[in-house]
Amino acid sequence: DCQPLIYGNLTHETWPASTHPGVSFVKSKAFLYKNWSGHITEVYDPLRTVSVLEPGGPGGCKEFRRELVETTAKTRKCVIAQNCGFFNTHTGQCLGNIVSDGRQVKNSGGVQNAQFGIREDGTLVFGYLSEEEVLDRINPFVQLVSGVVWLLRSGKVYIEESIRAECEKTQETGNLQRFVDVISARTAVGHDTEGRLILFHVDGKTDTRGMNLWEVAELLKEHGVINAINLDGGGSSTYVLNGSLANFPSDECEDKSWYCPRAVSTVLCVHERLCQPEDCSQHGTCVNGQCECQPGWAAPTCANLTCQPSACGEHGLCTSDGCVCDAGWRGVNCSQECTAGFYGDECKKTCTCVNGGSCDPVRGRCTCRAGFHGDSCEQECPLGFYGLHCLQECQCSDLCPCDPVSGSCNATFRSERNTSLHRAGHCLAIQMWKEWREQEKPYLSEQSWVVITATLAAVLLTSLIGNLIQVCGKCKGRPQQEYSYVPLKEVNGPRDSPNRSTMQPAKALFQ
């Protein structure tokens, strides 16, 4: 309600952040001017190189932690780190809005103090924000921290307006006015016309040395800063360069002979560019904002493998080492079977099959030719068996082995086997005899021969019986004749003396 009309209803300013592409991303200059000493730091690519850090790391605000800026800076390898947010020095509680690397740490509920933030699209935001704007999800803040007093708005000092806007309770006005006017150590953040983020700090001691906010605003304005807000100062004002304290803190140590840096709350950190994703998908190293992927993983995020799963076909697996082929397959895209004689992973194993057996390219199992068996096809079929796997039984005679391939009975095929020579000879004889018998076909069948033989036998038997009957009949009809022997010359004697002769029956002549 109380801001000048020239700003309309807008209570904050935005500016596109610089996206300096070079390797260099930060430049810090120390200054010693009048009685002032401090540093002005220019950050070229703030979206990728600036982070608001919780004390000691993530979760520090929830634990109400306070840590030295050096300690917190080490958690993120900050090249330059400064204190930033306000906090309760008694309890350690972080105050205001805090978004750290896209993570909402603390929402103040729209507290009316100057804010500095970086949105996801790289927009730098300075000014007053409602709770709805803080929680915007369309273009959310990736970094956000609260300060007190908007020093410069659009190139003009904006302190008076800030006092009215940030302190509506009359009784507190005096405190805020003193806060602005007193000289002390100061810390601030702003941006220039090129969108570079400007970190500022000046050493001091409250009421003794240092700068008031008017002087800070003027110095920043002279340096080309467009918008800037004031951050925590006094003894909290700390500047750390490459992990080491590089300013003069104003809090006394316990022994009061030295000055000591204060353990503070949040830290504004300038680091090397972050990668997207920050851990390079755990398959690469982030170097100046670019993921350098491990072999086999594809840029820019290192989330995908170099080879595409489809490129490895049905017989391969896409891995970080390229296509890894299944056992029995080879080639860049695993499309070729192992060459003959090899099998297994990467076709590195040698087949052991002999006698013409083929090798299974996956496990190396032998497929034997007909007539052979065994793990390596090293054995011929045992006698009496033939064919694939020697499972078929020969139909040859006992003495005649069969061909182990075709199963045909053959006497010569085993000639090379000494143990079979004798059997083969017998087999050959039997074969020849069988062939001869087949060639010698009889004119009459065996049955015919049986009939003929039987008939002849019957005739012979009949004849024999007839003769016996006849002989027996004569023996019974007349007595036994006596025989006498007469010399032949008597038989051939003179014819005229037939009386001398005693004629004998004709039978006797025959004798």
Partner: peptide
């Protein structure tokens, strides 16, 4: 024993009683 601790003596408080903003809030109307 060489660690030195700050005495938090150089306090620069913008608001009385606290070290930080603790007052009105803005809402979108």
């Amino acid at each position: 024993k060489h660690v030195r601790h700050s005495m938090d003596d150089d306090l620069l408080l913008p608001y009385a009683g606290t070290h930080g903003p603790s007052h009105s809030h803005r809402h979108v109307r």
